[in-house]
Structure formats: structure tokens, C-alpha cells
Simulated scan of single mutants.
Amino acid sequence: MSENGAAAQSGSHRLNPFARREDFSGQSILLYKITTLVSYIILLVTAFYYTFNAPHDGKYAHRTIWGNNLATPFAQNHIITSIYWIVLFILQLFYAYSLYSNNTVYVNAAANIGAHYIASNLLLFGFIHLWVRSHFWLALLLIVINFFNLTFAYFRHSTTPRPIHIGTVSGPLAWNFVALYWVGAVAVGSHHLAARIVANIFIWGFLAYGLFFLAAFKDYTIGFALSVGVPGLVGRDPFKRGEIVSEDRERAPLLADE
């Protein structure tokens, strides 16, 4: 390759915010410090506000985040999911702090996933605004885009130090995988028997997804994070306490009557 070609490739590499790099300039780190904090605050404030308040604009039904947690086979448990995200937000503070560390390993690791993390925050910010305004298909589109964004972040930076990795990559990716089912079920209106039968098949995707990361990357954090989503698949306990369940019904937990 000619010197001009190599220089052009190096220049395009530098301009690509998602490219993996071995070192970052002080200006780049400063930019990540600012944009990380801004995107973090935007998402945190938006999630907190719409947890308790519904929007007042738009012609479609507008509800709080959990007001649109409709009864589908993949409805989430609002208490467990809220606690899960509180933990992620706390862990992400460690990620933000890593950008100020004197340890270059942590600084470079945090900067390398910075673009993916900021993109995820902005996509989830948009998702929340669409979700509470009942634009379910557009909300699903952003979840799909973010799923690929976080998946690429995982594959490109699978060796990121664990404290950063959990809060910014594996934790959000696990929830995003669950959200594909959750938002998709609401978008298609899966309230009938056929959808529940499909749900009983798709639920095995949780196990397969977690096992893949355990086998390929020796990463237990994805499987552990996915287990948070299981109790909320129907938004409640599948069976009432003390209820005697038939053998057939036990094999199909998502077919519980409304």
C-alpha cells in the first residue's frame, strides 16, 4: 500500500468513532468525558421522569413507561426491571469515572466503547419517548438498532475490564435482548393463543443466548443478567400461590389464562 493510501486509511480510522484504538488524544478523551456525561444525564432524567409521568402531547395513547407494559407473554416485572436499571446506572458511573483514571488500560477501554455507549443512551432516550407515546413499531426499530450496536460493542471489545463491561455492554445488551421480545409482543398485539404458543418456543432463546456467551466468551454476566427478565415474562407469577398446577400446564408456563 502506498504512503498516501496508508495515510488515508489511518485518517478514516481516526474519524470512525467506533474503531478500536490503542491510544487516544487528550482532546478525544475530553470529548468522551463531556458526551458521556450529557448522554447519561439525558437518559437518566428521561427514564426517571416517564416512570412516574405520562407525556401530554401526541394523538396516540400516552402513558408512563410501565403504563404501556401491556399484558403479553413477555411483559416485564416493573419492580425487578427498575432495580436492574438502577444498578446499571450506578455501574455506569464507574465507567464514566474510568475516563478520569490514571490507569491507561481503563481510560483506553472506556474510550473504545464510548461511541457505542453514547449511541445506546441516545437510542434508549428516543425509545422511551416513542414507547410512552405508543409508537410501538418505531420504538421496536430503535431497540433493534441498539441491539446491533451493543452486539458489535461486545464482539469488538469483549476483553474490556469487567467493571466497565457489565455496566455498559453486557448488562444493557442482556436487557436489550429481553426488550426485543417485550416491545415486539406489544407491537404485534400478542394476546391470542397462537402468540402464546410461539412465546413458549421463543422463551428458549433466553437460555440459548446466555449459553452462547458463556461458551464463546466464558462470560457468565449475560446469563445472570438475562435471569432478571424471566420472572417478568408474564408480568406476574405464572400461578397463584398454593395453586395446584396440572402437568400439561406446568410444561407451558406462558399459556396461563389472563
Rank of each mutant, 00 (worst) to 15 (best):
Q9G: 04
G11A: 11
R14H: 15
R14C: 04
P17D: 12
A19G: 03
E22N: 12
Q27C: 06
Q27T: 14
L31N: 12
V38Y: 10
V45R: 09
F48H: 05
Y50R: 01
D57G: 05
T64Q: 10
I65Y: 00
L70N: 04
P73N: 09
H78N: 13
I79D: 03
T81D: 04
S82M: 00
S82G: 11
Y84R: 01
W85D: 09
L88V: 14
I90F: 02
L93G: 15
F94R: 11
F94M: 11
F94D: 13
Y95G: 05
S101N: 01
T104G: 03
A109P: 06
I113W: 02
A115C: 09
I118T: 12
A119D: 06
S120T: 05
N121H: 08
N121I: 01
L124D: 08
L124G: 12
G126V: 00
L130Q: 13
W131I: 03
V132R: 01
S134Y: 03
F136D: 09
L140M: 13
N146F: 08
F147L: 13
F147E: 05
N149M: 07
T151C: 09
F155D: 00
R156M: 08
R156A: 13
P161I: 11
P163L: 09
I164A: 06
G167Y: 01
G167W: 02
V169H: 00
V169Y: 02
S170I: 06
P172V: 08
P172S: 05
A174K: 03
V178P: 06
V178L: 08
V178Y: 13
L180H: 03
Y181G: 15
W182T: 15
V183M: 05
G184F: 09
V186C: 05
V186M: 03
A187Y: 01
A187Q: 02
A187E: 01
H191M: 08
L193V: 15
L193C: 06
A194Y: 01
A195W: 07
I197Q: 15
A199P: 10
I201C: 06
L207A: 13
Y209T: 11
L211Y: 05
A215T: 08
A216N: 14
K218A: 07
Y220Q: 08
A225N: 00
S227I: 11
G229H: 10
L233V: 09
R236L: 06
F239P: 00
F239T: 00
P253R: 09
L255R: 10
A256M: 12
